[in-house]
Amino acid sequence: MQRELSTFPLSPNYLQKLSIAGYNTAEDLKDVSPIELNLSLEREEALRIIQTVRSTTEPQQSSKTNQITSSNNVPGSKNAYDILLQEQSYGSIVTFCEQLDDMLGGGVPVGKITEFCGAPGIGKTQIGIQLAVDVQIPDEFGGLNGEAIYIDTEGSFIVERVVDIAAAAVKHMEHVAHSSEIDETERSLQTEAMRNFQVENILSKIYVFRCHDYMQLIALSHVLPDFLLEHSKVKLIVVDSIAFQFRHDFDDLALRTRLLNGLAQSFIKMACENQLAVVLMNQMTTRVKTSQLGQSHLIPALGLQTCTSRLHVKK
């Protein structure tokens, strides 16, 4: 079986030109030079097409230097043991609520998507802000010492509230540093770390993106990987909320599902590649059961299916 050119990430325009010229499978492009390709395309474009096809079909040649180590593996694969070790080194973001942490297995996990859903006023935004502060707890206290991205679609990010929560966190950490029974060197390390864990510093390490419509949100999901390259310390992305912009002005519901699925895939990609936690806030919707007349219950909106763990917040 030969691999068709349409399975490569090439634009439809190129694919059509290739198909007219009779190139349909990867095999056809094997020994063709960019000049021979002759598709009324710029030389550079032709070169790019050939490179795209070859880099994926002949991976061994490009990585000849580390062939000894990687020859046993399918490119891009990791074995489960390495993943286990990696997971153990990640840590997770504590919520300061012991029961919630226990439920999540030690806190909000890094490298996964966690969804919080609940009715309005239940405290989803509060959880989001709390996490954006908690992710910054210094290493000395067993935290992640990271930074946070807060994507605000509802306009509910209240900076005064962040100051309150940050001040409380600082106070709590100071208390921990003074009261815990540890030796002097560790305590001095902790007091040293506390110097950088102050309200202003905490605020400066939260990057807020305000998205007014779903296009902005999708555009942001394309820009974020570059932002994350520059800010490698970001360990948390909070999207508050994923639902809001998708719940109005949509005639084509299939398109909505498609966009949401695409969005979820780009978030999970960021979570895995940059080792960060993604927290999505979701709204609730009412479903009326046809079988039981008059019965209705609340279910998470949008029918998202990609999150790794989902928490249902109730009163």
Binding site: S77, K78, N79, Y81, Q265
Partner: peptide, 16 residues
Amino acid sequence: LSRISVIQAFDIFSML
């Protein structure tokens, strides 16, 4: 565990 290889693929092209 080392008999299990995990490949992460987040879009259809990397899956293919």
